[in-house]
Amino acid sequence: MTFVRRALRHRSFAVGAAVTMLFAFMALLSLVWTPHNPTRINVRGRLAAPSPDHWLGTDQFGRDVLSIIMAGAQNSVAVGVVAVAIGMVGGVALGLLAAACRGWIEETIMRAADFLFAFPAILLAIMLVATLGSGAVNAILAIGIFSVPVFARLARASANAIWTREFVLAARASGRGPWRITGIHILPNIASVILVQATVQFALAILAEAALSYLGLGAQPPTPSWGRMLSEAQPLIFQNPMLAVYPGIAIALTVLGLNLLGDGLRDLIDPRLTRSRT
């Protein structure tokens, strides 16, 4: 059976891919079209109930909730992509370096990774924000930096396993240097594992960004963001509770979709892991 056919039959992968694609499409669509301008304030139409004109109603500034959610997807996708890219590039490079060099370099890199792993990510974000001021860029940096040790550990463990394989021994025997072996043999063989982790980290980045934006440390107004929508909805929870429900559903569904996609990918890439996966 081809990979695509197997993938389509895998329930978790199919559902996860569909949900993820839906949100990616929503983010792309919002670049060119939203039902209303997500930042346009209309005081007369504030806190309107759902209607054919405003499917999810309007918020306290009269902005269309559906349009803000669509535009908020852009922010989440952007943060996820950039933060995961930072974590993946930095982490994989360090992991491969550790596996190729061994000795004190490996020990230093892994101890540093252990340390960053133990340090609550949101704390660094808070410190960065305290020094540099609130903003999406600082939030992305903090989330990205804390993805580095996750990728570094995974890349090093996977690379170490590949370094012991016969074809790598053969490449070494034929006189290839460690960097060439890493580029030609190690990296392509660990790429699938890294990809699976990237989907999980993407989901975590979206959660972290939402939390930071909720606290007022992430994307600043008027940039639409799901986390800030929730913090703006909280004072109105007695008056208009649904405002605090819609953005949360968007966050939870996106994260759920990415997690299912990651689980599905893991199964498809290595079916032996299915049994033991947690």
Partner: peptide, 16 residues
């Protein structure tokens, strides 16, 4: 799976 996907601060709002 659902529990892992829900942000704790949103769950807090739902509980409220």
């Amino acid at each position: 799976q659902l529990g892992i996907s829900i942000p704790s601060f949103w769950l807090s709002l739902l509980l409220i």
